[in-house]
Design a binder for these strands. Sequence first.
DNA 1: CCTAGATTGTGACTAATTTCACAAGCGACT
DNA 2: AGTCGCTTGTGAAATTAGTCACAATCTAGG
Lengths: 213, 213
Amino acid sequence: MPVTRHIPESTIRRISHYLRALEILESQEATTVSSEELAQRGGTTAAQVRKDLSHFGSFGKRGLGYSVAELADRLRDILGLKCRWRVVLVGAGRIGSALFEYPYFVQRGYDCVAVLDSDPEKIGMSWGPVRIRPVEELELVISSLKGDIVILAVPPEAAQDLADRAVEAGVRAILNFAPVQLRVPAEVHVTYVNLVLELEALSFAITQAGSRT
Amino acid sequence: MPVTRHIPESTIRRISHYLRALEILESQEATTVSSEELAQRGGTTAAQVRKDLSHFGSFGKRGLGYSVAELADRLRDILGLKCRWRVVLVGAGRIGSALFEYPYFVQRGYDCVAVLDSDPEKIGMSWGPVRIRPVEELELVISSLKGDIVILAVPPEAAQDLADRAVEAGVRAILNFAPVQLRVPAEVHVTYVNLVLELEALSFAITQAGSRT
DNA sequence: CCTAGATTGTGACTAATTTCACAAGCGACT
DNA sequence: AGTCGCTTGTGAAATTAGTCACAATCTAGG
């Protein structure tokens, strides 16, 4: 089991897709699946599926394919979905609110244990069982509630400072919606969701396609 | 000017970052910038900056660097930001609402010209100057308002059908927030924003980091 | 006009990722 | 038990992306 090897980011993303496909198959009571089928549902090729999985071991049976339930279980393990994660949401604006209500987070084991904001109007409001707290309590919240992941849904000018404080308080993972590059120590993992960037990729693609002769 | 060559997706994403950095520099009245400085602000290396730009031509002056205004202008051109884009938003739920209000879209030239939803309770409501329309009018809206880009912020089970209809109506770009892989013709561009996937990448990273000996 | 210092643009190299191709292994059927 | 059809797992090849190093060339200053 080569667990220590470096795994490409893209492999991880595909693994997530495979898991989603497997869950659909589970709900359809399928018992086995081939790399070919998994590839189609995940939008890639059979060879890629097998290569991706081979990074983590060998889970299939030659001539037969993969056991849906077993592979799904293994992938959940790989992605760290065997436990629940405590998420601290910073920013109770539009985006924060949408994320808080996003049903697939809870479904996948991500529990929003706290919401913070800097706006005095919002502080004290209750979102379901969670009361919005002042952003000053970030360190307190992270340590007392043992937050694993911080989601930053704040204006760009506030993001770096909050990231610094979260890291200082011991968080090892940040999901950043603010359109700025964060500077964090190497052991802290950051993923970016940059909505404008996604649209720009599209307008580039459309423009290019048109100008190609 | 090698415009026809295939450009890596990752280059485009970095170009977006460079443009953001340049706009900050513009607001600080800087007139020139070196690849080194651009690299630091964009989170990459000087060589990478130059290689990325070289895909599109040569915009700098040796010994001096790049003119901030000129390069920003050129990058806007490359990314297709010289015109305004008409975006049709499908789904007026939490995510849709957050996107509709997202200030950076308008700032960058993406105008939400219509909002559609399937919920009778929502249809007819006014979001600022835009009235929410029934999702049945998708084709009509795309053709009458000349929609360029469709944003899908709908439940996964509805996404494929809506994508098919949007493509049929002539849309060439889709930004998909539903956690499903869309099947579209090759000439249609799709980018995915999959929030769960981003969190999974983080929980994987944390888990791995811990288990590495 | 010539030199010094700086910085680009790019071709050669290196690293990473994906694709290919096929031996190995499994189950079903005879 | 032996054969057949199918599907995995994986090294090797091909492709793609990123880094390096340096010639080319610009400005400034004497």
